[in-house]
């Protein structure tokens, strides 16, 4: 087995005294396509932010490509939700995608020919080559979402992290985005956060269920393996929420 890309070990995150993640252990291996499912407020986005180094865990450790989060810049392509962006911002699709090259440039260094080349290739892969010069305000939700995927790809990452990529798109576009991800998984490790339980099972290699709110962290509070496998017809990885006493013995749960 290759080195794991992401290792979370007994990860706990508290924000303002509220437990968001509690005793979470998880490994993601190269060429995995992992979907993290869970209700709103279940800690999905928090998990991504910890992996990205935007948030520090209260306890427990995370390593990404064998290093602390935040040190693997350039190897991670992050795709945020398209809903959070100001559509009236005067920026073209190409300019937005160029931002994906940021981690590969020095401070004050301008984007060059190679950056433009990579950005255009990324737009090509996501099927948006014709939209390069369009202002983002004129794109549909699904198109903007694909531009954001193109931005992540432009940085030539090994790992793709996607936050609810199908949250704001119509059903047709959802299929397009999943088809795109099916293509991308050939060359990238993918972690996808979603609550789109309907279609996800057909595309991903593993599913983790995450619901670590304060009142749900006792043993056996999530769906068990059998029922999830039945639901998705797939091997399923369950992230269980154990009581603190049980944590020490379950350290290698996900490594098995």
């Amino acid at each position: 087995m290759s080195e794991p890309v992401i290792v979370c070990d007994r990860l706990c995150v508290e924000i303002g005294g509220a437990r968001i993640l509690h005793g979470l252990s998880l490994s993601v291996y190269e060429a995995d396509f992992l979907a993290v499912l869970g209700p709103n407020g279940g800690g999905k986005t928090t998990l991504l932010k910890v992996i990205l180094g935007l948030m520090k865990p209260t306890s427990g450790t995370v390593s990404v490509f064998g290093e602390a989060p935040g040190h693997a810049k350039g190897r991670i392509g992050y795709v945020p939700q398209s809903l959070v962006f100001d559509r009236s911002f005067p920026i073209s699709a190409l300019e937005l995608v160029l931002m994906g090259r940021l981690a590969r440039k020095r401070l004050m260094q301008r984007y060059g020919k190679e950056d433009r080349q990579k950005a255009l290739e990324a737009l090509e892969i996501t099927g948006l080559a014709a939209f390069a010069g369009r202002r983002i305000g004129t794109l549909s939700g699904g198109e903007l979402q694909r531009v954001l995927i193109a931005r992540a790809l432009a940085g030539e990452p090994d790992l793709l992290l996607l936050d609810e990529p199908t949250a704001s798109v119509d059903p047709d576009m959802k299929t397009t985005i999943y088809d795109l991800l099916d293509e991308l998984r050939k060359h990238h490790t993918i972690v996808l956060v979603t609550h789109d339980t309907g279609t996800i099972g057909r595309h991903v290699s593993r599913i983790a269920c995450l619901n670590c709110t304060l009142d749900m962290h006792e043993a056996g509070s999530t769906l068990d393996r059998a029922s999830l496998e039945q639901l998705y017809g797939h091997p399923v990885d369950v992230v269980r929420h154990r009581d603190p006493a049980g944590m020490a013995t379950s350290k290698h749960y996900d490594h098995a």
Binding site: P80, F89, L102, A103, L107
Partner: peptide
């Protein structure tokens, strides 16, 4: 490019090491 990045998407700018 740095000012554009923090204006449009500060979080992404931070992830990119700015």
């Amino acid at each position: 490019k740095e000012f554009l990045a923090i204006s449009f998407d500060e979080e992404y700018a931070r992830i990119s090491g700015l």
